[in-house]
Amino acid sequence: MRFSVLASGSTGNAVYVENDEHSFLIDAGLSGKKMEQLFANIDRDMKNLSGILVTHEHSDHIKGLGVIARKYNIPVFANAKTWTAMDGLVGTIPTDLCFDFNMETVKTFGGLDIQSFAVSHDAAEPMFYTFYENGRKLVVITDTGYVSDRMKGYISAADAYVFESNHDVSMLQMGKYPWSIKRRILSDVGHVSNEDAAVAMADVVAEKPTQIYLAHLSKDNNMKDLARMSVEQTLQSCGIMAGEYLHLHDTDANEPTKLVTV
């Protein structure tokens, strides 16, 4: 498997995953034009996508979905409640491009298995995905207020993670957001903080080479250096030294990460 975090943050999210036979886009939270640019940056073409996997209906995850699906005739996969919640938000997607991907099930595409799992977020039925091929495992998990033991069962011992590290709690508390928004972000259906993300990572990583991409950083309540430092320090307090077998990577709201092999 190979993957790139095309864009990740408050303004739009998209992750690309491929093997030798198939390629998938997890969410399309930027404009069609911007998505085309991001694909060009990793030397890929959206017309070759096998499908788009939707996590939930928030605009930073589906902004370009309808346009891209219609333009390139790409199948779209989502669970029933998310399809209902997206109605009126993405325009009309032809029926022959609409497919159900039920919660906590597995779909197989050639040698690639994709498993969906539930997260805790204020959306209709939010879910993320784990990819398996030839004994290798890639997890994409953002947009969750906490990481439950059930989630940990799905995501443990992966070779690579795209893992939410949304906010610094102090920055959020002292920031300009109204209290109602702060309370929502800090809730069990909001987003995980840098420290909470690291505690969850410590519970699920195995003692083997593991790549973790810190994702969905808040534009107003986090910074790359701060997120990385906070995660490193919290991991260290849990007995894990970043840089030994576990390696942390930044993601960006506007630039894709290098296409890497899992």
Rank of each mutant, 00 (worst) to 15 (best):
T55H: 12
S170T: 11
N166C: 12
N254S: 11
P209R: 13
P178Y: 09
A202T: 03
L217S: 13
L65Q: 06
D203F: 01
D203G: 06
S120N: 12
H247S: 08
L30P: 00
V262I: 15
S187I: 04
H22L: 03
K152Y: 03
G64E: 08
N222V: 07
I185C: 01
Q173C: 05
V15C: 07
L226F: 11
Y129E: 05
S180T: 13
D225Q: 13
Y146L: 14
K34A: 01
S170M: 07
K208R: 14
S165R: 04
I141S: 13
P126K: 12
S23E: 06
L186D: 00
T210K: 07
E57M: 04
G145M: 01
G32M: 04
P256A: 03
D43Y: 07
T108W: 10
S230H: 05
Q37R: 15
L97F: 08
G110V: 03
S187G: 04
T234P: 00
K258F: 14
I68V: 14
K81V: 01
D122V: 14
M223S: 12
A160V: 08
G66E: 07
V76T: 11
S10Q: 09
P94N: 08
A78G: 01
Q173R: 15
Q211V: 05
I26K: 14
G190R: 05
S180K: 06
A227N: 05
Y72T: 02
A197R: 11
R228M: 12
T105V: 06
G153I: 00
H56S: 08
D220H: 15
E232K: 14
G66H: 03
H58K: 15
Q211S: 12
N79S: 02
C98G: 10
V260I: 14
L138P: 04
K152L: 10
M103D: 06
A80Y: 05
K81Y: 04
D168C: 10
V147K: 15
E133H: 09
E255K: 13
N79G: 00
A28P: 00
L25Y: 14
A206S: 07
R44F: 00
L25S: 14
N134L: 07
N221E: 04
I68M: 13
H61V: 02
D168E: 02
I155N: 02
I42V: 11
A157R: 15
A85H: 05
Y72G: 00
N222E: 03
I155M: 05
K81S: 10
A253N: 07
L214E: 06
T144L: 00
V5D: 06
K63D: 14
T144M: 03
S31K: 11
M174T: 13
A28S: 09
L172C: 00
A242L: 02
G12M: 13
F128C: 11
A118W: 08
F117W: 04
D250A: 07
S4A: 10
D188W: 03
E232W: 09
S180D: 10
V17N: 09
Y132P: 01
L25A: 15
M35C: 05
T84V: 09
V260Y: 02
L49M: 10
L226D: 05
E232Y: 09
A7S: 09
M174K: 15
S116Q: 11
D96C: 10
T210W: 14
D87A: 14
A123G: 08
M151G: 07
I141Y: 04
A69P: 03
V15N: 11
V15P: 04
V67Y: 15
T261I: 12
I62A: 04
M35S: 08
H22S: 11
F39A: 07
A14M: 11
S116R: 13
V189C: 08
